[in-house]
């Protein structure tokens, strides 16, 4: 039995829309095992993104507990959250969110800058990371000079550069074509698998969910059902390969 790195207890998030109260996340209790890949699957408005934001401390829950590595995230203040994210969390966004006036290398360096890592070390680590995503030759390019797939690679490099224990990906392939989608997923699987990182992916794309060991179906802020994928692509890559062939 592996330990649970993330524990959610009766998590609730209620938004007020005028007089109406909408429960975006309603009484969710869920554990995440260290080193696993979980997919939060649901339609738009199912509360999957809100759940991700709660876990990562971007939003405060209305009720309930979020315990990551034994720490109560919901009780942290802004500064503690920032330090917490520096330490344990990496982010991949749907719209890449790279800083436009920084080069690819500098974008990857950014989390290390906030963490006050020395210039030499952070350059080496960022360059290594860019190599891992196959963009070492584009290190000095600005995001505007890169394609969508390349930008997402930079974004992935940025998420993993700090070697975080948990990586969140919010619709990481939403803006990409099918072929690039598989490349990105393979890349993330490869990187997270190497260091036994816990990966949480939010998506509405059923095909992406095939990569996960566990699929949590969400609907109206509640867990509808949980599916376990014994033949997850991460372990047997055949399905993925077959798909890639298909696309080609």
């Amino acid at each position: 039995m592996s330990e649970d790195i993330i524990k959610l207890r009766n998590l609730k998030k209620i938004y007020r829309m005028g007089d109406e109260k909408i429960a975006a996340v309603n009484n969710v209790t869920l554990n995440f095992e260290r080193g696993t890949v979980t997919c939060l699957l649901g339609k738009s408005g199912s509360g999957k993104s809100t759940l991700l934001n709660l876990i990562s401390g971007l939003e405060k829950p209305t009720k309930g507990e979020i315990i990551i590595k034994g720490l109560h995230v919901e009780r942290m203040d802004e500064t503690q959250l920032a330090k917490f994210r520096q330490q344990y969390i990496g982010f991949v966004f749907q719209s890449y969110n790279l800083l436009g006036n920084l080069t690819a290398l500098e974008n990857v360096t950014l989390p290390l800058i906030f963490k006050r890592v020395g210039i030499k070390e952070r350059k080496e680590r960022a360059m290594e990371m860019l190599k891992a995503v196959g963009l070492e030759k584009r290190a000095s390019h600005k995001p505007s000079q890169l394609s969508g797939g390349q930008q997402q690679r930079v974004s992935i490099a940025r998420a993993f550069v700090n070697n975080p224990e948990i990586v969140f990906a919010d619709e990481p392939t939403g803006n990409l074509d099918t072929k690039t989608t598989y490349q990105m997923m393979d890349l993330m699987m490869g990187l997270s698998g190497k260091n036994k990182q816990t990966l949480i992916i939010v998506t509405h794309d059923m095909e992406i969910s095939d990569y996960a060991q566990r699929i949590v179906h969400l609907s109206d802020g509640r867990i509808e059902r949980i599916e376990y994928n014994s033949e997850s692509i991460k372990h047997s890559n055949e399905l993925g390969k077959a798909r890639r062939e298909e696309v080609k």
Binding site: E78, T79, A82, Q86, N97, L99, L110, F114
Partner: peptide, 13 residues
Amino acid sequence: REIGVMKVIGATV
């Protein structure tokens, strides 16, 4: 957006 991104990837207030 830039400010938001910086916050998310670990910039403190």
